[in-house]
Amino acid sequence: MTELTPADERFVAFDLDDTVREQAELDGHTVEQLSDYLDRGRVPADPRIDDSPECEIALRGLERLRRARQALLARDLERESLRADDWVASILDNITLEAHAGRDIPLTHPSPTARLVVTEGALRGILRETGDSMQNMFVGRCVLVGDVSVPGTPILIRVDVTVFPGENIPLLAERLRQAMYAALSRYTELVVAAIDITVSDLHALPDVSVREMER
């Protein structure tokens, strides 16, 4: 184990080896307990901690450590963001559509030696792109329900959509449905019985998750 000099008296609470002394100096608490308390946002409030001057000093130290940790992360992330973009390309070059191709959906051709198919993944792509061409919504998951392997079998399509605030949802959903019908009939031979669109509101502003990352 690494050699560490005993803590300065002033910081006896942070003694690395002696839990008894640590607790004695922190009104019966440990640094771990205080750290967890801080992680919980100091709720529910614990008067035995809040009213202890010794704990308060330790908590301030832990808070300072947390701020330094956040600053360090922010600095590191900033450095990363200055990097050239080629790392993204090298990741994308190394993945294949194979993983999400899904089922094969047959296309007709007169020759007996022909086996022509369009993948489920390609069809989902058509549905997504159709949604992307419309404004103020995001198309999420697209599911093809039914036996797509038998030509002519009517299938059901389920689509999740997130709509920006203030939009007329029924109108937008109907326009999307018509556009998807049109795209499917143009590019595929599927018999589509229905397109179910589930709409949810976009509650949070879009950049929330990015901000959360820097927390």
């Binding site: 191709a101 030696t113 022909a114 198919v117 369009v118 069809l123 792509g125 061409s133 590019y187």
Partner: peptide, 15 residues
Amino acid sequence: PVVQIVVIVASVRLS
């Protein structure tokens, strides 16, 4: 002789 010719459409790019 040709036994089978398989053609798979794996992506359709609209935009």
